Computed example of a mutant assay.
Amino acid sequence: MQLTIPTILTLLRIVMIPVLVVVFYLPFDWSNLAALLIFITAAITDWLDGWIARRFGMSSAFGAFLDPVADKLMVAVALILIVQRNPELLLAISAAVIIGREITVSALREWMAELGQGARVRVAWTGKMKTILQMVAIGFLLFAQDLFGLPILSIGIWLLVAAAVLTILSMITYLRAAWPAVQQQR
């Protein structure tokens, strides 16, 4: 297997996960900002690897498999760190919903692909909106410090709750799309 630039960027995102964890726990005033910058860098490399793969024809089966895995790992680890630092019920439920949905939809996509019906569970607009809202919320929650009088942590919590609602809606969309295939397997 030849490593392409997009695959290298995806692998870099996976390597950034333990770096995020270490920086998150550093006892310095700047650690929240550094954790945020690591997360933003991961989000940028996610966009960049997809763009490069499409633009320059560097797509690969391994890259297509690894990219969503890297994304889900980064999001799950970030959410676990955030909930550990702020063990609030609303935050914990939202994180559990998001992580649970990611596992469920990933399994559903894999199963549908095995049935030859992967096209039924393509990314929907609710999934894209959920991702955007979730990334912004996680960024706010990693930073977690008031900025220009804005309560960043509180805003991040409510954004994550909104992302969790969209998460449920997008999961319902995927399950409804897959339902005919589920009925056929009975």
Rank of each mutant, 00 (worst) to 15 (best):
A107C: 11
M112S: 01
F24H: 03
D71H: 10
V123K: 09
M129W: 14
R120W: 01
V136T: 00
A178M: 11
G63A: 06
A43K: 13
N86S: 09
A96Q: 07
T45P: 10
I52V: 14
A42C: 12
A92G: 03
A162K: 04
F62I: 12
V15E: 06
A43V: 09
L26S: 10
M171F: 08
N32L: 03
N86T: 09
S154P: 01
Q117D: 08
L169E: 14
L66P: 03
A107D: 12
T104G: 15
L150I: 05
G127K: 01
D46M: 06
Q184D: 14
F148H: 02
A178D: 07
K128T: 15
E110L: 15
M16E: 11
L153T: 13
L91Q: 01
L73C: 04
V19A: 08
P87M: 15
L3P: 01
G116Q: 13
F65Y: 05
L3G: 00
P180Q: 02
R186I: 02
R13H: 01
G100T: 09
L153A: 08
F24W: 15
V97N: 12
Q84R: 15
I103N: 07
L160I: 07
I98Y: 11
I52C: 13
V182P: 12
L66V: 04
D67M: 05
G118I: 14
L153Y: 13
Q185E: 14
